[in-house]
Each structure stands twice: as C-alpha cells, then as structure tokens.
C-alpha cells in the first residue's frame, strides 16, 4: 500500500509540481493551503509524512508542527519543513519543535523525493 503524504503549502506554484512529483513517485498525496486545513487533513487523512511550509496564512508551519507533535495519536508522522526562511535560527527552531527535516526553497525535486523516501524507510 502506497505511503500517504500531505502537502501543506499556500503557494500553488509549488504545490502543483510537488503533488505531481510525489504522485509520480508512487505516493498517495493530499494537499492543504493553510494551517487549519492542514491540521484537519492530518486528522482525516492520517498521513505518514507531512511536507509543511512555514509561512502559511493564519496558523503558521511552526504552530502546525507543534500541534501535530503534541497530539499523541500523530506520534509516528514524519514532518518535513519547507521554507524560504533559511537562517540557522529558523532551522534550529523547526528542529526543536520536532520536525524531522528542513528543506529551504528553492529546492531540487530530487532532494524532496530523497528526503521523503529516507524518512519513510527509516525506523518508526
């Protein structure tokens, strides 16, 4: 059964190619365009991994990441943060909130697929 990936990203120019890319790689993909919708999708879709943009309208990526980590039912979900903010502080904050990886924009598609594969293949 295909692994499930949720992409939470408000910029459709990134959301569309990413969705295509992950689907082509055999993942089951769902999308959300803001933080609240993202959290609802997590509950509904129960993804194995979330690709999460940080600068989202309303609830930002850090808050969504924290909410997922604080929910015991979501313990095994992998989280990859995507951000145009790429300072050391941003990375450190994301990792401290429980993200598994941090990818800064602009990224290579190969970097996304490699990271997703690595995280989903690793021990839970």
């Amino acid at each position: 059964m295909a692994a499930k990936v949720l992409i939470v990203e408000d910029n459709s120019s990134i959301l569309i190619p990413l969705t295509f890319l992950l689907e082509q790689n055999g993942f089951e993909v769902q999308t959300a365009v803001d933080g609240e919708e993202g959290l609802a999708a997590v509950a509904r879709f129960a993804p194995d991994l979330v690709l999460l943009d940080i600068m989202l309208p309303g609830l930002d990526g850090y808050a969504v990441c924290q909410a997922i980590r604080e929910n015991p039912e979501c313990g095994e979900i992998k989280i990859v943060l995507l951000s145009a903010k790429a300072g050391e502080m941003d990375v450190a904050k994301g990792m401290a909130l429980g993200a598994d990886a941090f990818i800064s924009k602009p990224f290579a598609n190969a970097q996304i697929t490699a990271t997703v594969r690595r995280l989903l293949a690793g021990p839970p």
Binding site: A84, S104, K105, P106, N109
Partner: peptide, 25 residues
C-alpha cells in the same frame, strides 16, 4: 525580497525539474 524570491524560484525549479524528469507527461 530574499524570502519572496526564494518562494518563486522554488516553484520555477520544482516545475522545470518535473518537466525535465518526466518528458512524457
């Protein structure tokens, strides 16, 4: 400026890489 350009470039790069990787799309 940097953040916004990074976002836009992210879209461009992702799209063009997908087109190059899957020419039969």
């Amino acid at each position: 400026l940097v953040q916004e350009v990074r976002g836009s470039l992210g879209g461009i790069r992702s799209a063009i890489e997908a087109m190059l990787a899957y020419p039969q799309m």
